[in-house]
Amino acid sequence: MGTAPCFHCRHFVNDPKRIESSIPGLNTLSSAYASVRGEAGLCSRLDLFLSPGADCRYFEQDGAEQKGT
């Protein structure tokens, strides 16, 4: 069955710099550039912190933005 993972959604933000600026204090004792984050990111629509493989009804295909950095 095909699914629509958040990784390919336009609402999914996993750029480390944007994650750190969205959650002040995150870089004080941790880092969005750490292995432990994996490729998790923020859903800008639902305000959730998600794994890239999560999915939901609000998925919208990401057109241009390069993910995974």
Partner: peptide, 11 residues
């Protein structure tokens, strides 16, 4: 951070 993404927690 690891567990928040694992369980799909609110930001």
């Amino acid at each position: 951070m690891a567990i928040a993404s694992a369980v799909g927690a609110k930001k």
